[in-house]
Design a binder for these strands. Sequence first.
DNA 1: AAACTTCAGTCTTGTATAAGACATAAGACA
DNA 2: TGTCTTATGTCTTATACAAGACTGAAGTTT
Lengths: 255, 255
Amino acid sequence: MAATTAMASSGSSNRIEAQPLYVKARNIMVNRLIAGEWRPGQLLPSEFSIADDLGVSQGTVRKAMDDMTAQGLLVRKQGRGTYVAEAEDNSILFRFYRLTPDDSDATTDKAEFPESDYLAQSQGQATKQEQDIFLLSSEDMVWRFERLRSDPLGPILWERLVLPARQFPDFTPTTRLPNNVYQFYSSRYGIIVAKVNEKLRAVTAPQNVSQLLGLPDQAPVLEIDRRAVALNDQVVEWRISLCRSDRLHYRNELK
Amino acid sequence: MAATTAMASSGSSNRIEAQPLYVKARNIMVNRLIAGEWRPGQLLPSEFSIADDLGVSQGTVRKAMDDMTAQGLLVRKQGRGTYVAEAEDNSILFRFYRLTPDDSDATTDKAEFPESDYLAQSQGQATKQEQDIFLLSSEDMVWRFERLRSDPLGPILWERLVLPARQFPDFTPTTRLPNNVYQFYSSRYGIIVAKVNEKLRAVTAPQNVSQLLGLPDQAPVLEIDRRAVALNDQVVEWRISLCRSDRLHYRNELK
DNA sequence: AAACTTCAGTCTTGTATAAGACATAAGACA
DNA sequence: TGTCTTATGTCTTATACAAGACTGAAGTTT
């Protein structure tokens, strides 16, 4: 082991922080991701060189990376190296997309990713609720989108999407979100979405929505309230979707 | 290393199966769980003794166990040993229970586990659909339950539950399921539920259900179609729940 | 001369093992 | 009864080697 380095405390000092080396290593590396020092798609230094940098062995760095890989943060390729995951990796396009046509039974048989029609897009001051969600003050601005998403058979869902303006500085009232937003956040702004929290309810569709979706009046639809949170635990996106439930369902696998 | 054992192939035979030792070890151990050789709650032999048994090193066995622990199959306790997980471990009571009152915001603030009132219970021949789900023949029998589940504030959901009779030989028309069924399957029959697949829809409640739940006629409710699958990939439980969605929601966290 | 193949060297991640640290429980002993 | 010792577990770290992937030199063919 190296003589004197950042991590190798080695002095059995009276510091209370009894934390395994690989946990410290993981924290350091995750912080580099948060800080944007390592950006999505980037090739990381090799396990050996990181180990050398941190003053630990390759196995320890590797164990730290195990967690991050399992979490989907990193992607390893034997013989080539380890990359910061992009939203497209791992067929992760569908990681957060749970809607499936009723007929396709196989779990692997994925639906097409729906297209989007934009109904409205505007910037405005954050409402009380939005301030709570994004931890903003009353002067802060947010972007709001309304769009209708459809697959080849017709409209699937209506959704309202809110983003804190600060995180997306170069937006204009005419910039459209791409189809895969998390890929977009990742590649363009370096925002890594670590998880999303969803709340599902069954509600009766408002008249305008049921019309847009081509559903009868008072039809029941699935309401999905989703908050995407980044690695630093900040909410970076809030969306409410109203999904038709007559030919689609929300599929979930719990382990 | 031991001289000649089951796993240490060592012969460099022309078999194509190039599988890492730790994968083989994991398969062997999972099979012991499936076979019931190791039952839920049981203390496993130590990593060293298993390693000795399989003819590999402790580290390899440990790596195999890492996966199983992450999967929730095993529970490790430093200094004591490794146990086969019980359904109650890991506050796993709520692992498959995703319904939360609207007011409780914190993810850790768990709702009370609801009580059950049984409306019907009977044994009968498997329908076509049930044969498909459980891979049964037309003569095979199933148990069917109907129950109303309530929390202190009143009824929450109505559900119909189907079990293949073969798996639960000592059932009678009056035996009630305990509140935590997966704990029950595990401790009594050694059936380890590895995962559950759920399909969610928004539907209008049938009149009898809306009455039972105290909802207005035509109220939208959340329909949850759940299939619990055991370690051997067999479906061991099928249930359809209709949940009130006015003061509860289904919460999901995707990583 | 240009294009292709082969192969060795060197980089990477993946696998297996060993040794010691740390945690817990049970018996020895004052 | 309380403390110490010991045995037996898991947990952490390090090391050695295997296997995949790229690079470039050397040879071969066209």
